[in-house]
């Protein structure tokens, strides 16, 4: 399995974390997993919505101490 890349988008607001994730996704290889860190609750809901809409794979999501961790696998 490819290494999981951390995208730290803490302390900004929607749609900042989504845009940071997309920027990193563009550079990632198919099959790579990215873990986005966000302190913005709106983004925690919106990013999975985007993942489903564009057809990547949602791996897992969790929250710890006000930081959401959303893991996505690049499919295409």
């Amino acid at each position: 399995m490819s290494e999981r890349k951390i995208v730290d988008a803490k302390n900004t607001f929607c749609p900042g974390p989504l845009m940071e994730l997309i920027g990193q996704m563009k550079m990632a290889e198919i099959g790579d997993e990215l873990e986005i860190l966000s302190t913005d609750q709106g983004s925690a809901a919106d990013i999975p919505e985007w993942i489903n809409k564009v057809g990547h794979e949602m791996v897992e999501t969790s929250e710890n101490d006000g930081v959401w961790h959303i893991v996505v696998k690049k499919i295409k």
Binding site: C14, P15, L18, M19, I22, D46, W50, K53, V54
Partner: peptide
């Protein structure tokens, strides 16, 4: 926000 989120969502 509308332009960017709209555009990256296809």
């Amino acid at each position: 926000m509308v332009a960017s989120v709209g555009a990256v969502s296809g």
